[in-house]
């Protein structure tokens, strides 16, 4: 299928108890831990979308996240996804009502796939992002889905799960290669391409971005619709305006 939409660049923010954690190094931030301020800066820099990953473990932390979503919705002019800790339709409703555009689900969707169909029916497929953490399983010769933040092998084949998620009504797949994550050696092109060729819903590739050309490769060879990264943006190793300029100059459709 032809795709005329612009490829998206998506910074991901890990948020715990309402604070950004993991490597934020913006010199011009008043408060480096404030997710709302950071989100606004990414918006101004030309990010096409944002992902918040709530890694709070407590009920209080989750409640704080709703407040962050509310504030963020009032500050930014691009769509954003909130993932982490969503295990019920009521959780989705709370986050969407607070102003998020999409909901990301990972472990909860593996445990209870009906959550995908229920969410899609209630809020529309465009709101439902299924996050898949995949690692190559040598014995299988293909990728396995991991849950619980990458700690637990699920026994599910990533390609099967991606297809199933699409069938259940997922609007998008956020695909993280655990093999590539943190290496800065580039996105996992094989994995991304395999999933992109299999499903018709958009794929957000994640894990391994280290250079501007890594994004180029994942958009062209990997056929990804969006590229997500965290530390390289947070540490300004790659500035979003430069990245977008670079991709544009190489002929990629970019906003």
């Amino acid at each position: 299928m032809r795709n005329v939409l612009a490829k998206r660049i998506i910074p991901c923010l890990d948020v715990k108890d309402g604070r950004v954690v993991k490597g934020v190094n913006f010199v011009n931030l008043r408060d480096a831990g404030d997710p709302v301020e950071l989100a606004a800066i990414y918006d101004q820099e030309g990010a096409d979308e944002l992902v918040f990953l709530d890694i709070s473990a407590s009920v209080e932390g989750r409640a704080t996240m709703v407040e962050v979503v509310k504030k963020t919705a009032g500050e930014i002019t691009i769509p954003f996804t909130v993932g982490g800790g969503i295990s019920h339709v009521d959780d989705m409703k709370r986050i969407l009502r607070a102003g998020a555009d999409k909901i990301g689900m990972n472990t909860a969707a593996v445990k209870n796939p009906q959550l995908i169909s229920e969410g899609a029916r209630k809020f529309g497929s465009q709101c439902i992002v299924v996050a898949i953490d995949a690692r190559f399983n040598e014995a299988w010769g293909e990728w396995e889905v991991y849950t619980h933040g990458g700690r637990t092998p699920s026994g599910l084949r990533a390609l099967d799960w991606a297809k199933e998620a699409e069938k259940l009504g997922a609007g998008e797949i956020l695909l993280t290669s655990m093999d590539a994550d943190g290496t800065k050696d580039g996105f996992d092109i094989r994995l991304t391409r395999a999933v992109s060729d299999l499903v018709t819903i958009p794929i957000i590739a994640s894990g391994g971005a280290g250079t501007k050309d890594h994004f180029y490769n994942v958009f062209t060879e990997g056929k990804a619709d969006a590229g997500l990264a965290a530390t390289i943006f947070h540490y300004k190793e790659i500035a979003i305006p430069d990245l977008k300029q670079h991709l544009k100059s190489r002929g990629v459709e970019i906003r």
Partner: peptide
């Protein structure tokens, strides 16, 4: 032909450039 819903960033082409809604703006 194409994925439905039409979801994402797509380029707007002005048909009536002189409409006040486009004053001072470029297509994007």
């Amino acid at each position: 032909k194409l994925k439905v819903p039409h979801m994402g960033w797509n380029k707007l082409s002005f048909v009536q450039q002189d409409s006040p809604i486009f004053t001072g703006l470029e297509e994007g």
